[in-house]
């Protein structure tokens, strides 16, 4: 059983070949990091998974079914920018997805249904460390908090696959370490497969269970249009990193930080303590 099965995928724009014969199976609950030089088609590949673009050749299966030709609620996404809606409050942003799913005409819920949803949204915000910011607008949040909000908003839909397009690329190192801890915890707790594009190798190896490298085998200027990127390496992290379990190498404490914040503060929530007890208990 695989969550995503990609076979012989090609993507061409006119004469220009971007992706060439890409095949990869991604298991359920894995965390795949896509790395590679700029302009090698990582983001194009992610857009194909999202359904924002259609492949020129090849096919993508999600849980054995062909991928729908447009984005849908089974695949969540977080971009580096523009992931949240500036005209909605933090709470409104998180409630938007379920509201639109339940109310197909007005896109709003009222009364008891709305209150129940608001409670659920508040719990999700607390989960990502945004408790207390419910009534703010995204522009009033820092970059790291906006990305936490984007994660919360995507996770409210309980997507089977979460696609991340350089989500933490614009954050400074301290904030990034905190949000890495959050990302790792969410991946451990929420039943989803994660595919992340990043140009930060350290981030890829810190978070992912598997690192996949895109590269153009022929990259001379005159070859660049006619030869696309292929998968050049597929590295499974050893010892295996499995969702819900930890390896001896996993730590939320960032080595080399001058002032390692306590774990709970790093993840921005109080649930960290429980997560760690659970994680350190012996696995069956």
């Amino acid at each position: 059983m695989t969550a995503l099965s990609i076979s012989h995928l090609w993507k061409e724009y006119g004469d220009q070949i971007v992706l060439e014969d890409v095949s990869i199976d991604i298991g359920p609950r894995s965390f795949v990091a896509l790395v590679g030089p700029s302009g090698c088609g990582k983001t194009t590949f992610l857009r194909l998974l999202l359904g924002q673009e259609t492949p020129s050749r090849g096919r993508i299966l999600i849980d054995g079914q062909p991928l729908p030709p447009e984005p849908g609620p089974d695949r969540g996404v977080v971009y580096q920018r523009y992931s949240v809606f500036p005209h909605l409050t933090v709470l409104g942003n998180v409630m938007l997805g379920p509201e639109m799913r339940a109310s197909r005409f007005l896109g709003r819920r009222f009364g008891a249904a709305r209150r129940a949803l608001a409670d659920e949204a508040r719990a999700m915000l607390a989960e990502v460390g945004l408790a207390g910011s419910e009534q703010k607008y995204p522009a009033q949040l820092s970059g790291g908090m906006q990305q936490r909000l984007a994660l919360a908003q995507a996770l409210m839909m309980r997507p089977r696959v979460l696609l991340l397009d350089e989500p933490f690329g614009a954050l400074d190192p301290g904030i990034r370490a905190d949000i890495h801890a959050l990302m790792r915890r969410l991946w451990n707790e929420v039943p989803m497969t994660v595919v992340m594009v990043t140009h930060d190798l350290r981030e890829a190896f810190t978070l992912a269970s598997r690192v996949v490298v895109f590269e153009r085998p022929r990259d001379r200027p005159e070859e660049r249009d006619r030869y696309g990127a292929r998968l050049s390496r597929d590295i499974v992290i050893w010892p295996p990193r499995l969702a819900g379990r930890t390896t001896p190498y996993d730590t939320d404490r960032m080595p080399g930080r001058d002032d390692p914040t306590p774990d709970a503060a790093a993840a921005g929530t109080t649930r960290q303590a429980e997560g760690r007890t659970h994680a350190s208990s012996p696995q069956p």
Partner: peptide
């Protein structure tokens, strides 16, 4: 931004 529209699609709009 196109991202915003795609994001709304992933939120079932």
């Amino acid at each position: 931004p196109r991202e915003m529209i795609v994001k709304a699609e992933t939120l079932s709009a």
